[in-house]
Design a binder for these strands. Structure first.
Length: 560
RNA sequence: AACUCCGUGGUGUAACGGUAGCACAAGAGAUUUUGGUUCUCUUUGUCAAGGUUCGAAUCCUUGCGGGGUUGCCA
């Protein structure tokens, strides 16, 4: 477990918790992660999960998983299951504390009735449109509904009949009676309940009356004795309403809502609506497309959960709206994978190499380190023979300056193999290079250096042609070409990166890669980290590029 | 000219009245059987102006800039 150096300082939320503990306001800490089951979890949620579950771990408290399922028209069980899977994958556990806002419907209803009794809520017959128009706007106060002063008894009767199903969708709502002139629009008699004749994923058809988020969230927190209710900045303006309910209802505890800034990443969109659109309109293969910033997407891409946790630690928690560099996430991924991913050789775009002085029927088993960063990872055997494949990028007939790899007359080292020198380039009728004739130096076998002390400038990877596994490799790049796809005119879709996926169908893999389980991430030496995809079959695996290695040569090329 | 939150290198984040630090990114070099890793070094910052103070990123005032809010979504 490597801890980033920044763990010594605490974010403002943990400081508040420290104070609350020190002052005796609370004797323990209870947080909650409250997703709405209407979509898949994404990197933004990861930030919130790491915060809430992380605090629970650090303070010896607990973190509840609570599904905020107050809108049956948008929510589905499919999402509930995927959310649980993703949280567990990230490395967190809610134990016994799985809750649903829908579990509190009866209690919330009773409290609504008590609000009505106290003259703090009323049934409004206005249409949605009328309510909107009379709410006023940012600069002008709203006007009272003609039903605002309805007698308590009438409200009670109407509300009961709303529950009983006597009215159609949208015919009536229950509103809090607060202040139609309040500068915070959320307090201009917010809607508490709306009629929705819809099947709920848990309560079925028991209800046709559903509570709004604002009326549900704080009370749910209070019922669960949440001490610190952490949410994103856009709920800041809702806090006065959150508190209003807690003050006006006989709730069993007084949670405190604290807001922090959501996660933004360059070259990425993070809104559920936009992600849904990418899926529905087939710009990606699904919620778990490896280019998606969903947790299921980055999992399929091969990101280790530890990298996500470290990333969340590094970006910290603040109230300032910021956008994190995607490179920071990739750095976190590389940091973990460099330590943990076993190394293999794979050739993505093969050229055949014939070692003219190597015996035709000979096969040597070469020992190769599994991970130079971790001697305990041991070694494996890789077959070496007369005919090999190397990557097209590792040979140039007319090399530019500073090109260290193979070219006619030059010598390179084959990783865990021998030195080879190129003597002849074989081309087809079209002038395309199809084969290289090389010689190997028997005195340079891996582990021993040439007696004459000569050096080579490069070491390249290879696979034995006769032993190679055919595979498909999917090279993923960022989904969007623009740093801020949301900015500027037009749709974010205008900024989709046309090269975000490149499929290589003729890759040749080292024999040992046949044993890699789906979901495992390995390093293809010199190329990057790759994750075995479920689309693969035993005789034809599919690998997704998780992230490339840093590439000083590519960078130098790009600049010249 | 509503309310509210927020402004620290290119990006993100520390410093709680006392040397502006760290990570990523960028650049230079060393090491290297991965042009990877690792190591060393370097560039770049407190939104502005006043004030309080021996001393201000930090406290005060004003200005400037950015975000959020006008769902019967969450």
């Amino acid at each position: 477990m490597t801890e980033p150096a920044t763990t010594t300082s605490k974010d403002f939320i943990r400081e508040i918790i420290d104070e609350d503990l020190a002052s005796g306001k609370h004797s323990g800490t209870v947080t909650r992660f409250p997703p709405e089951p209407n979509g898949y979890l994404h990197l933004g949620h990861a930030k919130s999960i790491c915060l809430n579950f992380g605090i629970a771990q650090e303070y010896g408290g607990r973190c509840h998983l609570r599904f905020d399922d107050t809108n049956p028209t948008k929510e589905e069980v499919e999402y509930v299951e995927s959310i649980k899977t993703d949280i567990r994958w990230l490395g967190f556990d809610w134990g016994e504390h799985l809750y649903f806002a829908s579990d509190y419907f009866e209690q919330l209803y009773d409290w609504a009735v008590s609000l009505i009794r106290e003259g703090k809520a009323y049934v409004d017959d206005q249409t949605a449109d009328e309510i909107r128009k009379t709410r006023g706007d940012l600069q002008t106060p709203g006007t009272a509904s003609p039903f605002r002063e309805r007698p308590v008894e009438e409200n009670l009767d109407l509300f009961a009949r709303m529950r009983a199903g006597e009215f159609g969708d949208g015919e009536k709502v229950l509103r809090a009676k607060i202040d139609m002139a309040h500068p915070n629009l959320n307090l201009r008699d917010p809607v508490l309940y709306r009629i929705l004749h819809a099947e709920h994923h848990r309560t079925g058809d028991a209800w046709c009356l559903y509570p709004m988020y604002d009326y549900t969230h704080g009370q749910s927190d209070a019922l669960e004795h949440i001490t610190h209710s952490l949410c994103t900045l856009e709920f800041e303006n809702h806090r006065p309403l959150y508190d209003w309910f807690l003050e006006n209802l006989p709730v069993p505890s007084r949670p405190r809502q604290i807001e922090f800034s959501r996660l933004n990443l360059t070259y990425t969109v993070m809104s559920k609506r936009k992600l849904l659109q990418l899926v529905n309109e087939k710009y990606v293969s699904g919620w778990d497309d490896p280019r998606m910033p969903t947790l299921s997407g980055v999992r399929r891409r091969g990101y280790p959960p530890e990298a996500l946790r470290n990333f969340c630690k590094t970006i910290g928690i603040t109230k300032f709206e910021s956008t994190n560099d995607f490179a920071l996430l990739e750095a976190a991924v590389r940091e973990v994978l460099n330590r943990t991913a076993p190394r293999y050789m794979a050739v993505l775009d093969p050229i055949k190499v014939v070692l003219t002085n190597y015996p035709a029927d000979q096969v040597e088993e070469m020992e190769a380190m599994n991970n130079p960063e971790d001697p305990a990872a041991g070694s494996r055997l890789v077959p070496f023979s007369r005919e090999l494949y190397i990557d097209r990028e590792d040979f140039m007939e007319v090399p530019p300056p500073k090109y260290f790899r193979l070219s006619p007359g030059t010598e390179v080292r084959l990783r865990s193999g021998y030195f080879i020198r190129c003597h002849e380039v074989v081309k087809d009728a079209a002038g395309e290079i199809i084969e290289l004739h090389c010689t190997y130096d028997p005195e340079t076998r891996s582990g021993s250096n040439p007696p004459d002390g000569r050096k080579v400038k490069a070491t390249i990877h290879w696979v034995s042609a006769a032993h190679a596994i055919d595979a498909e490799v999917r090279l993923y790049d960022r989904l969007f070409a623009a740093e801020f796809p949301d900015r500027g005119e037009g749709s974010f879709l205008d900024h989709l990166n046309p090269d975000s996926l490149k499929v290589l169908s003729n890759a040749k893999l080292e024999r040992n890669l046949a044993a890699i389980a789906v979901g495992e991430t390995v390093q293809f030496e010199r190329l990057g980290y790759f994750c075995a995809d479920p689309d693969g079959t035993p005789d034809r695996p599919v690998f997704n590029r998780t992230v490339g290695l840093k590439d000083a040569w590519a960078k130098a090329k790009g600049q010249s």
